[in-house]
Amino acid sequence: MAPDQTGDQSVPHAARGTQDIAAGLFLIAVALIAFWQAKGLPLGTLRSMGAGMLPTALAVLLGAFGIAIALIGALRPGVAFERWSFRGLLFVLGSIITFALTVRLFGLVVAGPLTMLIAGAADPQTNWKHTLIFSVVLTAFCILLFKVALRLPIPVITFL
């Protein structure tokens, strides 16, 4: 259903499935965190399950899958671990967090353009002049749409 994320034609192959090793380790980490969080909860019995039964069982199961996937990666040649785009991560997630931090403080008038400009930095192809103009226009449009038309209680200007 999702668009073709694997880029089928040019999957880099490696002597070991480093992607699977990393994927397995990731699951093991998630499992350990869940196990640690569920530790204090009563397990109960099968006849009357406690709050901790399912999370603990799932954490153990997940850990087992993590080990299996990491082992598959370590023993068989497979897909190489892909490089992460830290630029995209930093600016896209940064813009979302900036929105969260500024929307109540200053209102949409500031948060809107700021979010779009920070997000723009994620793509080297960004044309700053266009993005700047577009961010102002779109913020105005959003205020009209969400505040005036849909009457959502979103702060527009808080500092005047």
């Binding site: 979302i96 929307v103 979010t115 997000a119 994620a122």
Partner: peptide
């Protein structure tokens, strides 16, 4: 490069609301 910042802003407003 022009579209995705707009999509992001829309999503942020949507989630906040």
């Amino acid at each position: 490069s022009l579209l995705y910042p707009a999509i992001l802003l829309f999503c942020c407003i949507g989630i906040y609301s």
